[in-house]
Design a protein around this nucleic acid. Structure first.
Length: 289
DNA sequence: AGCTACTCCTGGTAGC
DNA sequence: TGCTACCAGGAGTAGC
């Protein structure tokens, strides 16, 4: 599932196909992908404008658009959330859309008479949970988001304070995007294993050394996963170039229930916490009493 | 405040 | 082979 590393990889790899290109049109196969924005509004916000940046915030891809004459002033954004099965891919001019295309952004390069077809950015999404929302202000669209786990605003101390100020199970807390933005089911399980913390541990019972271990584990897991361009294991996530990521080969617990722990050989267990499959090693990750 | 359930969706798979 | 039933899962929302 696209989490921070997959979204970061997506943003990085589509950036060269978008920045400097002008929006020439749209193709919409699934209206709800637009998140309530009408085609008319979509056209008013994006058509004729040039993409100036492709960024990531939490699990969102933020695509900035400006007037060609004043590219320094961002006038509109396309806020993309891949949810479970969404992908952004670049298609060459005239290329037929891949299956499950829900939305296509038609692009051009150059100005006036010199405008040439630059293909499309296609949003593919078999399960239709993803959204591409056009807006003048991303803060109208984005929910309350916690700090970026790889940013400067996230520190050992801030994590420790955040854990101590709540009494929530670690698994749902770390999945809560308003607490920390970017982790999903896979990387939470992996980070908790690395920090040797049981997913049901109450956040206010995490010791100082354990909080430090968790901080380091979150950063290590995400950094390594970005380097490996994310995790591909179920046929859904691929990078914009169609390549699978390779972090799935590093999984210690996710999807490994019934198999031996790579550290202690105990059998990895799977439980359900807050409707989420949760994987852990019962020996390495003891629940704090 | 924090929990649980429900909703949105469809490809894949288990069971018959 | 072909059918049905069920499941995964990010996140918004509702109810307790």
């Amino acid at each position: 599932m696209p989490e921070l590393p997959e979204v970061e990889t997506t943003a990085r790899l589509i950036r060269p196909d978008l920045v400097g290109r002008v929006v020439t049109g749209f193709e919409v196969e699934w209206e709800r992908t637009l998140g309530g924005v009408t085609r008319r509004t979509l056209a008013r916000l994006l058509r004729g404008r040039v993409c100036t940046a492709v960024e990531r915030r939490a699990k969102y891809v933020l695509i900035a658009f400006a007037e060609p004459e004043e590219p320094e002033e961002v006038r509109a954004w396309l806020v993309v959330h891949l949810r479970m099965t969404g992908r952004l891919v670049h298609s060459a001019p005239g290329e037929a859309p891949a299956s499950h295309r829900r939305f296509g952004l038609c692009l051009g390069e150059g100005r006036g008479e010199g405008l040439r077809d630059a293909g499309r950015i296609d949003f593919l999404d078999p399960r239709k949970f993803g959204r591409c929302v056009a807006t003048t202000d991303p803060y109208d669209v984005l929910p309350e988001l916690g700090p970026e786990p790889l940013g400067e605003g996230f520190t050992t101390d801030s994590l420790r304070a955040g854990l101590a100020s709540r009494r929530r199970q670690l698994k749902p807390l770390l999945l809560d995007q308003s607490f920390l933005a970017g982790l999903g089911n896979i990387y939470v399980d992996e980070a908790l294993f690395l920090a040797r913390l049981h997913p049901l541990t109450s956040s206010d019972r995490v010791s100082r050394p354990k909080a430090e271990a968790l901080f380091a584990a979150i950063r290590a897991v995400l950094t390594e996963a970005i380097e490996r361009e994310g995790s591909s294991f179920d046929g859904f996530y691929r990078t914009p170039t169609g390549q699978p990521g390779s972090y799935q080969h590093q999984f210690q617990v996710y999807g490994r229930h019934g198999k031996p722990c790579r550290v202690c050989a105990a059998e990895i267990r799977r439980i359900v916490v807050g409707q989420r499959g949760t994987h852990f090693c019962p020996r390495c990750q003891r629940r704090a009493r």
